[in-house]
């Protein structure tokens, strides 16, 4: 089992995300995370998919994605040549005594407290998947009421870019 990050550039039409997601469920591929949004060229959407499987399966995933009529390019974003980021919102139950220590942990991870209520906090944190996992680990012992993770967004490093035209 390996994990790969694919960047899919697809026509920004209705139903494109369901076609991509449907391909994964239909053929029994795993989706660890999937994010989608419009690119700098509004005709295209960028879909970032984190997936895992054997080498053969990952090769098929790349080919099957490329085969979709709406898909323009499929690129693997290798860890060494790419920047991976994810955003998480964490709602933690706190007592007045605990509040300071949680704020301290959040500062270390360069997170932000975005909402404060008498009995809880909402923390916003961005970073690679491991960083967020690590942060959640450090919150161990505190009660996490709710957690929302966006899934991974990623770009390749350097000047190289995917061309939108024609």
């Amino acid at each position: 089992m390996q994990t790969k990050v694919f960047q899919v550039l697809a026509d920004n039409t209705s139903g494109v995300l369901s076609r991509i997601a449907g391909l994964f469920s239909r053929r029994g591929y795993n989706i660890d995370s999937i994010t989608a949004g419009v690119t700098a060229d509004p005709r295209y959407s960028r879909v970032t998919i984190v997936t895992s499987g054997s080498a053969d399966v990952l090769e098929q995933i790349e080919k099957q994605l490329s085969k979709l009529v709406d898909v323009k390019t499929v690129m693997e974003l290798a860890p060494d040549d790419s920047v991976y980021r994810e955003l998480a919102l964490v709602k933690v139950k706190v007592t007045p005594e605990e509040r300071q220590s949680i704020i301290a942990i959040t500062d270390i991870f360069r997170g932000k407290i975005v909402d404060v209520a008498p009995e809880c906090l909402i923390i916003e944190i961005t970073g690679g998947i491991e960083k967020i996992d690590k942060f959640l680990e450090l919150l161990n012992g505190h009660e996490i009421l709710e957690l929302a993770r966006t899934g991974m967004a990623a770009l390749s490093r350097g000047i190289e870019n995917v061309t939108y035209l024609p």
Binding site: Q60, K63, Q64, S66, K67
Partner: peptide
């Protein structure tokens, strides 16, 4: 003609 069939 279908690259996905090769190696499947």
């Amino acid at each position: 003609v279908d690259p996905a069939e090769i190696g499947k």
